[in-house]
C-alpha cells in the first residue's frame, strides 16, 4: 500500500513529488479508448495539421487526470480528493516530457475535515506552464 501523509505533517509551501510523463501516441489512443473521446485531432496527424496545429494534441482531460494522479498519489490512500481544477492554456504534444507539479498553498480545519489547498500545474520541456490549476484534498489526522 502507498504511504499515507498526515495533515499534521503538511505545511504551506510544501512541494509534491513531481511526476514526469512522456505521453506516446499509444497513450493518447489509450486515453481515447478509456473516455470514448475519438476526436481525430488526438491521433490522426493529417487531420491535426489540417486544423492548423503542428502535430496531434495531448487531450486536455488527460492532463487533468495526470494532475489528479499527482494529487491522489501524494495524498495517500486515506485521503479524499475533493476538487481538481485546471485551465488548458497551452498545447502539449506526444513524445515530449510533460511534468506535473504541485505546492501546498494553505491548510485549514473545517466541519471536522482537515483540508489542504494546492496549486497544481503541468510544465512542458521548455518549463512553460501549460496547465495551471488548483486542488482541494482532505487528509487524515495522525493517529
Amino acid at each position: 500500500m502507498p504511504d499515507q501523509i498526515y495533515f499534521e505533517d503538511v505545511g504551506e509551501g510544501d512541494l509534491l513529488p513531481e511526476i514526469t510523463e512522456r505521453p506516446t501516441t499509444t497513450q493518447l489512443v489509450h486515453w481515447a479508448a478509456a473516455v470514448g473521446d475519438f476526436y481525430p485531432v488526438h491521433y490522426d496527424k493529417d487531420f491535426a495539421v489540417g486544423t492548423g496545429v503542428p502535430a496531434v494534441l495531448v487531450h486536455g482531460p488527460f492532463k487533468h487526470a495526470l494532475l489528479s494522479r499527482l494529487v491522489s498519489s501524494w495524498a495517500g490512500p486515506q485521503a479524499t480528493v475533493k476538487r481538481i481544477a485546471c485551465s488548458f492554456r497551452g498545447q502539449d504534444y506526444p513524445n515530449q516530457d510533460l511534468t506535473v507539479k504541485g505546492r501546498v498553498t494553505g491548510t485549514r480545519s473545517e466541519n471536522g475535515e482537515n483540508l489542504v489547498e494546492l496549486e497544481i500545474w503541468s510544465e512542458n520541456e521548455s518549463g512553460e506552464k501549460t496547465t495551471p490549476g488548483s486542488a482541494l484534498v482532505a487528509l487524515p489526522s495522525r493517529p
Binding site: 485531432v41 481544477a85 488548458f88
Partner: peptide, 11 residues
C-alpha cells in the same frame, strides 16, 4: 474544430 479550455471536477 474544438479545443479544451478548462476542466473543474468537484466531488
Amino acid at each position: 474544430e474544438l479545443l479544451a479550455g478548462s476542466l473543474d471536477l468537484e466531488y
